[in-house]
Design a protein around this nucleic acid. Structure first.
Lengths: 226, 226
DNA sequence: TCGATAAGTGGTTAAGTATACAGTATGTTC
DNA sequence: GAACATACTGTATACTTAACCACTTATCGA
């Protein structure tokens, strides 16, 4: 796949995300250069090329402000799983809860390059507090009203109880399921008759719990309802 | 105070919102002109001026794609469709979107006594903007992930299209259904096989449309998930 | 009938913007 | 130490875009 971003590339990427959140449109090369202290817009241009090569952004040619964050492009994912990208860490969110789109195999969820945008809702709106919003893929939790494209509010914790909706990482894939444990045997249930439960034996398989679901948001930012 | 948008202005506005949702940045004058069939970018320019005069958008001068939807400033932002509705109006809420619980027969939805609390989310988080959140009762819309206790974000308007999720008042009861109209015959569909569609003949029965659903929130304020 | 407003066409221009080309400096890797 | 990537400076050019001017047509209320 693609290599992780360098520190400087991360700065450029962060500025793009911040600008889009703040002004509603992406920056120009000149604006990036000014913000990062470059004396030439070409420095920004080359960083953008690098970011595109690594898949962090998409560039629309010959278009002013033609920078896109590749997030809600529909993919042929069968399950409530998310796909791949590399690692880094996120600082304190400027404006609410970070919305996480695609998550990479082997990388932490809260990496800056996964963040589509921010949802201006305080973490404490949910109980226990939400740490981020995860964009759900697939319909495996359809029967309890969690649909494709919904944002699942997630509280980060490893301590989960039977019956809770958990965000788990299984074989480097992130998935949303209902949790049940009996000794060393964990079962992850889908809420959709089309999906079979997943059985994990903790003695032979690893299961990472990323957190528990504490809420759902649908319809923000252009997403259709119904 | 500003006047409501004309139909044509509404089209331009809708295109801007759609473009920002789809591409992540606002359109240029030329793109608006092409999409709406104008032969001159000036037609788009003048519409933008009109939209700005009416407070629907903000224009950043001399900036390509410098169109913003005024988010944190709920000042003179007026949607044409609201004006037609009965004005039992709530003042600009400093605390976000009002959450409506039980609605009494015969009383307007947005009456102060129905307001449980406020959800600290800007109206513009949803598109078109949400005017209030309605607590859903029953499971008639279960199949599209709207469950008992969920908060349905509602945009006040009487102008609804086939297939939209509407909040309707039928015999003084407020209900959420999928809307379909054929001449004077309106059908309200539940999204749950256990509920039959409701047929209304507009010549003999009255039907008030309170608005359209633009989003869903679940899990806030102690409400359980799953 | 008049005036105001909406909704355009058509063309121009200056500023904003993307992007190519030519360099420099500093690392890392084999 | 050659080969290569990152991270820039500096200049130049062509395309994109915002914004203005002049003019036309249609509608609507006074």
């Amino acid at each position: 796949m693609s290599r992780p971003l360098t520190a400087r590339q991360q700065h450029v990427f962060d500025f793009i995300v911040k600008t889009m959140g703040e002004f509603g449109y992406p920056p120009t090369r000149a604006e990036i250069a000014k913000a990062l202290g470059f004396r030439s817009p070409n420095a920004a241009e080359e960083h953008l090329r690098a970011l595109e090569r690594k898949g962090a952004i998409r560039i629309i040619r010959n278009t002013s402000r033609g920078i896109r964050l590749p997030n809600q492009e529909p993919q042929e994912v069968v399950d409530s799983t998310i796909s791949a990208l590399p690692a880094a860490n996120i600082e304190a969110s400027p404006a609410g809860l970070p919305v996480i789109g695609e998550v990479a195999a082997g990388s932490p969820i809260l990496a800056a390059e996964h963040i589509d945008r921010y949802c201006p809702l305080p973490a404490e709106y949910f109980t226990p507090k939400a740490d981020y919003l995860l964009r759900v893929r697939g319909l495996s939790m359809k029967d309890i009203g969690i649909l494709e494209g919904d944002l699942l509010a997630v509280h980060r914790t490893e301590r989960v109880r039977d019956g809770q909706i958990v965000v788990a990482r299984l074989d480097d894939e992130v998935t949303v399921k209902r949790f049940k444990r009996q000794g060393h045997q964990v079962t992850l249930f889908a809420e959709n008759a089309d999906f079979a439960p997943i059985e994990i034996d903790l003695r032979s398989q690893s299961l990472d719990i990323e957190g528990v679901g504490v809420g759902v948001i649908r319809g923000g930012n252009g997403q259709a309802l119904g």
